[in-house]
Design a protein around this nucleic acid. Structure first.
Lengths: 260, 260
DNA sequence: ATGGAGGGTTGACGCAGCGTCAAGGTCAAG
DNA sequence: CTTGACCTTGACGCTGCGTCAACCCTCCAT
């Protein structure tokens, strides 16, 4: 007659595991000796080894009892089911591994490489760290909504950085938002540049295809993101409204300048 | 301002997940509106998307906050650690899969193929199902204790089945244990055959290398297994003692026959 | 005004497979 | 008699939420 620790040692499991199998009814409770200790016979050892064999093979404990007294065909069927689950789980973990392998840099969080390349170019033309991070967060919102279409848009955005006016704009904005000045006079300069760019884009008809108007939420979110990041963004939008433009990432020409 | 379900939908997670992230402090609780509803801004959306990106990559929730504000080198280090854990887990599951693939038949539970081949031969020479299962359970105990040496022993056991006396023994035992008769007269015949075989083995010196005497427990267990499986096994051992042999799977010649 | 559908809120249990105290009773050896 | 190694039950912890339960809020159609 074995004690619980001898049983566990023989089968290569922990004492706690044996007691757990008792609790869930997988291994029957044995007789107790005079002092209340569990005493195990040889059949218990064999049962426990069978249980461990199945458990080590990935069979859930809840199914082991059924499998132990199943006919060969049902057993084989159960094996196939469990093997399928194991395969799925392995696959899941492997996609996790490929995902994690692409998280090398901080910028690539949730962003395709085209966008991180664009952000690198932004840095290269003189945008500040804060500016780039703000842009990055905006693109994260875009990527979440249009994960496929974002790739199409990047070449155009990247090409825009060849325009000296755009470069100038990003530098000015970087300086503004890196400073502490809440009422920076350069805000007006930035607004002028943006209005000018908007005018050009409008003339070129670039706003037309933006009329698709899928869903307002993402656009509103991107606007809000800027506002939340820095109150001066709101001031900038106000200046834009004075110049006849509304919106922020999705501009529209206002019918007439507001009077306020 | 978004409600919790809008936020969750945008980030592609469940409402419950968002609340869970609040509970564990991963995502800060937002302001509430007049009626107590949570109201989210754009930064919450971005945070949530970042969290999901890491979580989908297999990063434990408890580490995500640290990773989100880690410098690139610490970030990369954490990535390596997590990737290692993923790799280990995948490996574990894959060994589970190879294990489970070998569990085709019921006999192979915890047994190497050499043993199942031996069991098949037992069936072939006329051993009953009960008999084979009892043998199988015994071998499970052996395999648990000497997983490596068991392979060496099988050729000898298999060769023994060429002996007509052994074949006769297994058939007689099968008949006895398949019947209901508690005091079957064939028990004596079986004992005679076993004594005869023991005598031959003793003369051939086959018991000598069994003197290694590693550990009594497994031998005792195998004896006990037979006793637990059928009370007639005890009667058989008694008959063996009368013929001058003790033990069951590990026999010894008794100095003199007991008088009882 | 009312009633119902479809949001939202907190609180709590459940899952899988044990690990790990806690607080005691038992056994064998020195 | 003490000491240390085992045994007992009971209960919480871990991971990442799913799933009630019981109740409140809002909006729209009647």
């Amino acid at each position: 007659m074995l004690t619980i620790s001898q049983l566990a040692a023989y089968a290569g499991v922990t004492v706690r595991a044996v007691r757990h199998y008792h609790q869930i009814g997988l291994l029957p409770e044995p007789e107790r000796d005079a002092s209340g200790y569990r005493r195990y016979g040889a059949t218990a050892v064999v049962s426990l080894i069978k249980i461990r064999t199945l458990a080590d093979a990935g069979v859930p404990l809840s199914q082991i009892s059924r499998m132990l007294d199943a006919d060969p065909s049902a057993f084989a069927e159960a094996i196939r089911t469990i093997d399928g689950k194991l395969r799925d789980e392995i696959e899941r973990l492997q996609t996790s591994r490929t995902h994690i392998a692409q998280l090398t840099a901080g910028d690539s969080l949730a962003l395709p490489p085209e966008v991180t390349a664009y952000l690198d170019r932004l840095r290269a033309i003189g945008a500040s760290q804060r500016m780039v991070e703000a842009e990055r967060d905006g693109w994260i919102l875009v990527a979440a909504r249009w994960p496929d279409r974002i790739v199409e848009w990047m070449p155009g955005k990247s090409a825009a950085l060849d325009d000296p006016q755009v470069v100038r704009l990003y530098r000015v904005l970087s300086e503004i938002f890196d400073g502490d000045e809440q009422d920076d006079p350069r805000l007006a300069e930035a607004a002028d540049i943006m209005a000018c760019l908007a005018e050009q884009a409008y003339a070129a008809g670039d706003f037309l295809h933006a009329e698709e108007a899928d869903d307002d939420i993402p656009h509103d979110l991107i606007d809000a993101l800027a506002d939340e990041a820095d109150p001066r963004a709101q001031r900038l939008r106000e200046l834009m409204r004075e110049r006849g433009w509304s919106g922020w990432n999705r501009m529209e020409r206002l019918a007439e300048p507001p009077r306020k």
